[in-house]
């Protein structure tokens, strides 16, 4: 008896949670094909009766939103540039620092490691104001440098790399040394290929973090041309006099789909990265 009850409770829980997680996404995508009057209708249209691409047209053509050219396309490009640069830089710095922390003996190694772990745990928001002042002093407001620079180094990535590279046997490295490999050769031909899953995870997480980052991008951009997708999309709501639901949903969909594609392609790196971080930490 007890068995049957737990079974039903468990499945109800699973169903409700799955609906709560996925229904908003369905509502977002279907909403993006609705005109304002259809979106506002009560009872709601479960499936768009008059599907239209009008919202996407507004988003991607000039003049309707700002006098600027094709705002959404520019935001998409900004987001891509920022996320790609951050991801490439995070992989590079994390691999190098992770290798040094895992396999090199130097003074203060433990201290550096703890500094990395601590900053990984601390919210970035605490340093928001000084970081902003720094960017202002560098005159990097409204520039790609300002959007990218604070994320060049990714503490979680360094941590992940170190944990992963620690497991590479020392014998392998010293064997290569004996065969006359230089430091660079060891790193490039032995350590990096073995750390591939971790490299993938760092690339993915830094990309996703940058793509979905909001607060910093909001603060550091003032001109609509420099907005990234999340900032631009959120401003659609706050600047337009009447909240155009369909347009907002179309913007959100445009921000969502590229990231979904990345996720589907690299799913196993996500899973690996999350479980390595949790179970070794």
């Amino acid at each position: 008896m007890a068995n049957r009850w737990t079974f039903w409770i468990a499945w109800t829980l699973l169903g409700v949670a799955a609906i709560m997680a996925l229904a908003p996404l369905y509502w977002m995508i279907s909403g993006s094909f609705k005109l304002q009057q259809d979106a506002m209708q009560m009872p709601p249209e479960w499936f768009p009766k008059h599907p239209t691409l009008e919202n996407y047209r507004k988003l991607f053509t000039a003049g309707d939103l700002w006098s600027g050219h094709r705002p959404a396309l520019r935001w998409l490009a900004n987001s891509l540039i920022v996320a790609l640069c951050i991801s490439i830089s995070a992989v590079t710095t994390s691999a190098l620092a992770g290798y040094a922390l895992a396999k090199k003996r130097f003074r203060g190694r433990l201290f550096v490691f703890w500094a990395v772990v601590t900053t990984m745990m601390l919210p970035r928001q605490v340093a928001l104001m000084p970081l902003y002042l720094l960017i202002v002093q560098l005159d990097w407001v409204d520039s790609y440098a300002g959007l990218i620079a604070p994320y060049l180094c990714f503490p979680f990535g360094i941590f992940l790399m170190r944990q992963f590279m620690e497991q590479i046997p020392d014998e392998l490295i010293s064997a290569a040394r004996i065969d006359g490999a230089t430091e660079w050769h060891v790193f490039w031909y032995i350590v990096l290929p073995m750390a591939k899953p971790a490299l993938g995870a760092v690339a993915i997480f830094s990309f996703m973090g940058a793509w979905n980052e909001y607060l910093w991008q909001l603060i550091v951009t003032n001109r609509p041309e420099m907005y990234t997708l999340p900032v631009g999309v959120s401003k659609l709501v706050s600047t337009l006099t009447s909240f155009d639901l369909g347009l907002a949903m179309a913007g959100a969909t445009v921000a969502f789909l590229p990231m979904l594609a990345v996720f589907v392609m690299f799913q196993r790196y996500f899973v690996k990265g999350i479980s390595v971080g949790a179970l070794k930490g």
Binding site: P24, S234, F256, M259, L260
Partner: peptide, 19 residues
């Protein structure tokens, strides 16, 4: 299924929830 909302990010989802 449960990781897709993480992918979507808080801004997109916040706008849907607003509606």
């Amino acid at each position: 299924a449960f990781y897709v909302p993480v992918i979507a990010g808080s801004v997109c989802l916040a706008m849907v929830w607003m509606w």
